[in-house]
Write a protein that binds this DNA or RNA. Structure first.
Length: 533
RNA sequence: GCGGGUGUAGUGUAGCCUGGUAUCACUCAAGGUUGCCAAUCUUGGAACCCGGGUUCAAAUCCCGGCACCCGCACCA
């Protein structure tokens, strides 16, 4: 199925549509309808099962709007805030800092001046005024103009900031992973292709923290998972994750773990294994902080679509926040705890002797190793501190280090699109969505063969008992039974249960399986047990 | 953001050149009939992307905007 067809089916069957259509539409925003919301919830359920329940990630739901200082530290204000110019003649657009020598180190003003003396690299004509483009949506927090704030461009930062908090919840133990499902916002220059490039989108992200000296090993279970890899050097391989790691194709054991997990998750929700590959970023494509990065890509009618990224981010984020904020983001390296003797200043004596200058002295010795005879500069005078102003104390200290992090990051909207395209089946007679039950929008269609002789009442009764045990059921009594099967198939309802006259006599129903169309006559109780997930 | 194309019921479309009550199919709803894979009959609902201009009259011609598609650029 191609892109246009997916969009048409999605609109017709209540999966998604462009948002704000009544007002002419707004590019980059989508609304999900009744069926789409169910599919999203189901995919998220599987994701949570994989990462939160099974892998034991600590789940977080962070705030959407963040202060300017956060995005300065994370690098988003610098990196995302591009100065653009375009050519007045040929209309081509460029990043201003790429056109000027040393442009990346210039201030906005310097850059603006330099640009007026620069011409279009394409046609040598005059360039337009420089305009600023920030990929983040900005807003004001509080009354009046308010303090500047931004909608988060990724969910990851919430987890990084929550790291010390989460670590306490984990009673200080590493490795530890935080997980988050949530919306992110990017003011894309040209959003295209509906759910594939949105300005508001849903991410599922994991930040897996570990000591650089103690990277989690690849478990035997994950080793066995088979995976398609496309290395940065162009080599394509199909092997187990274990083999790929042993041969050095994947350099980090935790990256290998997460490639395996991502593969397993995508297969579980219904992505065909032959349409899935993991492509390694080349060094020029990689973000500046990343040492190894793989994109999980799904093959569609539009080519390979990136739906997952697994990146080794080193300690870039935690050290950035550690340096810029007032919080400690480092952890003690176990086993490095040592007793050491340190000289501590005797504040009382210093105060009595130096009065007002004591404050300056304390400030000056804060960042140096204190020892007898050290001299400090006070108002231009050098003062030597003898042992009487300090005492030797024994302390236990550990080596402190920023944990490293491996981040698998999933784009829900893209995954949903790819699933729709790959699970769309057609055999000439009927068209249906062939998703596994886990991600089908409904478990069961309940349909009375006729709406008379009490069949509909019986069906309603069965519907109620199915819903009571957690089955997501859809009731339909309109039109011929064939038409109802077809309607159910098109939104991917996994089972259909038909109630006929025999049901009233012996309590059996026919249970139909969507993909095979096979029907079995079984008792109501057995049918419900079979449908139950 | 640039260039090209497109915009008509829920979906897919005809009509646009050459201005004059908007076509067809499916879908949807109600009723009849039928009763296990989109059967059938009757009836009904539902659209010219938005704004301005030209004209007696605009889906149709012109201008602007918005959205979508393709290409370029952008996509830490």
């Amino acid at each position: 199925m191609d892109f246009q067809k997916v969009i048409a089916v999605a609109t017709r069957r209540g999966i998604f549509q462009p948002a704000y259509e009544a007002y002419g539409g707004l590019a980059g925003f989508m609304d999900y309808g009744p069926v789409g919301v169910r599919m999203r919830r189901r995919i998220l359920e599987v994701w949570r099962k994989h990462y939160v329940i099974d892998a034991g990630c600590l789940e977080l739901d962070g705030a959407l709007i963040g202060p300017e200082s956060l995005f300065q530290a994370s690098g988003h204000l610098g990196e995302f805030d591009d100065a653009l110019v375009d050519c007045k003649n040929c209309g081509k657009q460029f990043r201003a800092d790429h056109l000027v020598k040393n442009g990346e180190e210039m201030s906005r003003k310097e850059l603006s001046n330099a640009i007026t003396e620069t011409n279009c690299p394409g046609c040598s004509e005059e360039l337009s005024e420089m305009s600023s483009f920030n990929l983040m949506f900005s807003t004001g927090v509080g009354a009046g103009k308010g303090a500047p704030g931004y909608l988060r461009p990724e969910t990851a930062q919430s987890i990084f900031l929550a790291f010390p908090w989460l670590l306490r919840q984990n009673r200080g133990k590493l490795p530890m992973a935080g997980a988050q499902i949530g919306r992110s916002f990017r003011n894309e220059i040209s959003p295209r292709q509906g759910p594939l490039r949105m300005r508001e989108f849903t991410q599922m992200e994991v930040e897996h923290f570990f000591l650089p000296t103690d990277e989690p090993k690849l478990s035997n279970e994950l080793r066995k998972i088979t995976i398609n890899l496309l290395a940065a050097n162009g080599n394509e391989t199909n092997s187990t994750v274990g083999e790929a790691f042993d041969s050095g194709g994947i350099s980090s054991s935790l990256v290998a773990c997460h490639l395996a997990r991502a593969q397993h998750f995508l297969i579980t929700i219904g992505v065909p294994v032959n349409k899935l590959r993991f492509r390694q970023h080349g060094s020029n494509e990689m973000a500046h902080y990343s040492s190894d990065c793989w994109d999980g890509e799904i093959n569609t009618s539009l080519g390979w679509i990136e739906t997952v990224g697994v990146a080794h981010r080193g300690d870039y984020d935690l050290s950035a926040h550690g340096n810029a904020s007032s919080k400690e983001f480092r952890v003690a390296v176990p086993g490095t705890e040592k007793e050491i003797e340190v000289w501590m200043p005797d504040v009382g004596k210093l105060g009595k002797e130096f009065k007002g200058d004591a404050k300056i002295i304390l400030e000056a010795i804060k960042d140096i190793d204190l020892e007898p005879g050290v001299s400090v500069n006070v108002n231009g005078k050098s003062i030597e501190l003898s042992a009487e102003y300090m005492s030797l104390k024994t302390e236990r200290r550990s080596e402190m280090v920023y944990p490293n992090v491996v981040e698998p990051s999933f784009g829900l909207d893209r995954i949903l699109y790819c699933l729709l395209e790959s699970s769309w089946k057609s055999d000439g007679e009927r068209e249906w969505i062939s998703l596994p039950q886990e991600t089908s929008p409904y478990d069961l269609l309940v349909a009375p063969l006729m709406t008379k002789d009490g069949l509909d009442e019986k069906a309603q009764e069965i519907l109620k008992s199915a819903v009571n045990v957690g089955i997501d059921a859809y009731y339909d009594e309109a039109g011929s039974i064939g038409r109802r099967y077809a309607r159910a198939d098109e939104i991917g309802i996994f089972f259909s249960m038909t109630i006929d006259h025999q049901t009233l006599e012996d309590g059996t129903v026919t249970l139909r399986e969507r993909d095979s169309k096979n029907q079995k006559r079984i008792s109501i109780e057995n049918a419900i047990n079979k449908v139950r997930r």
